[in-house]
C-alpha cells in the first residue's frame, strides 16, 4: 500500500506543476482552488420513472485529473457518469433535474446538441464493445463521423499508441476488432474514444470484465491519459480507485454523494464514518 500512496503523491505534484501558470483563484470551491474545473454539477437529480437514482449531487471534476466514483451497486455512480455526456437521454423514462456545467455551460440547456456534447466528452463502457469492423475502422469511426478525415491513418496510429495497443495490432489493422482478447478489445475501445481527441473521457467500470493482467494495463493507460485528458472513472474496486485516481467521490445507497475529495484523504482519513465503514469493508 505504501508504494501506491507514493504514486498518488507523484500524481498530485505533477498535476500542480502543470497548473502553476493557470489562474490560481479561477474556479473557487474548497478542494479545487488551484485547479481548473472541467465539469461541475449543481443539485443534480435523476429519476427513472418514480425512482430517484441520484439526489442533489454537487461536485467539481478537475481538469486533466483522474476522478474516481466509487460506491456499492445501485448507488447511482454510473447514472451520474452518464449524465455528464447525456447518455441517459437514451434511456426511456429517465429525467434529469439540476445542472451539469461543462466549462460553465449547462449541457441540459435546450440549445445544447447532445451529439456535439459527446464529441467533446468521450466514453468507455463496462463491457468492451468494439464494432464488428476492422481494427482500423473501429478507431477511425469517431474521426469519420466527426469529419476529421485528414491524415486518418496517422490519427489512428496515434490513438492506438496512446492506448498502448499499437505494438500488438500494427500488423493486423484490417483484422476484425472482435478477434482481439478482452483486454485488447477494451484498449481498442479506449483508442476509439480518444482518437477524435475529446477533452473528457468517461469510463464506466472499464476493467471489471477483464483479468488482472489486462486490468493492470488499463490502469497504467488511465494514468498516462490523465496527462492529456480529464478522466472520470466509475469503479467498484476500491484498490483500483486508490491506485489510479487523484480525486475520489463516494456514493452510497440512495444516490447520495457522501464525500468527495483528494483520493489520499478519502482513503486514509475520511470525514464521514459511513465512508470509512465502506472503505474498510464494514458494509456495501
Amino acid at each position: 500500500m505504501s508504494e501506491k500512496t507514493v504514486e498518488i503523491d507523484v500524481e498530485n505534484e505533477r498535476g500542480e506543476t502543470q497548473e502553476q501558470d493557470e489562474t490560481r483563484d479561477g474556479a473557487g470551491g474548497n478542494e479545487t482552488t488551484r485547479e481548473e474545473v472541467a465539469v461541475e454539477t449543481r443539485n443534480l437529480n435523476v429519476w427513472y420513472g418514480e425512482d430517484r437514482a441520484i439526489r442533489d449531487i454537487n461536485m467539481k471534476v478537475p481538469e486533466k485529473k483522474v476522478t474516481a466514483l466509487i460506491g456499492p451497486s445501485g448507488c447511482g455512480k454510473s447514472t451520474f457518469l452518464r449524465c455528464i455526456n447525456r447518455m441517459n437521454d437514451q434511456i426511456d423514462g429517465a429525467r434529469v433535474e439540476g445542472e451539469v456545467l461543462f466549462h460553465g455551460k449547462n449541457v441540459y440547456d435546450d440549445d445544447v446538441d447532445p451529439v456535439a456534447l459527446r464529441r467533446r466528452i468521450g466514453m468507455v463502457f463496462q463491457k468492451p464493445n468494439p464494432f464488428p469492423k476492422s481494427i482500423r475502422d473501429n478507431v477511425a469511426y469517431g474521426l469519420k463521423i466527426q469529419g476529421k478525415t485528414d491524415s486518418l491513418d496517422e490519427r489512428v496510429e496515434t490513438a492506438l499508441r496512446q492506448a498502448a495497443l499499437w505494438d500488438e495490432v500494427s500488423d493486423q489493422l484490417d483484422g476484425s476488432g472482435l478477434d482481439l482478447s478482452g483486454g485488447q478489445q477494451q484498449r481498442l475501445c479506449i483508442a476509439r474514444a480518444i482518437a477524435p481527441d475529446p477533452e473528457v473521457i468517461l469510463m464506466d467500470e472499464p476493467a471489471s470484465a477483464l483479468d488482472p493482467v489486462a486490468t493492470s494495463k488499463i490502469e497504467d493507460l488511465i494514468d498516462d491519459l490523465s496527462r492529456d485528458y480529464t478522466v472520470v472513472i466509475v469503479t467498484h474496486n476500491m484498490q483500483q480507485a486508490a491506485r489510479i485516481s487523484d480525486k475520489t467521490a463516494v456514493f452510497l445507497t440512495g444516490g447520495e454523494l457522501v464525500e468527495f475529495g483528494d483520493t489520499e484523504k478519502i482513503f486514509e482519513n475520511p470525514e464521514s464514518q459511513k465512508v470509512e465503514d465502506y472503505i474498510t469493508g464494514k458494509f456495501g
Partner: peptide
Amino acid sequence: DLRNAAYGLGAT
C-alpha cells in the same frame, strides 16, 4: 452496447 459505443462517439 454497439449503439452506445456509437452514441458515445457523437454519432447521430
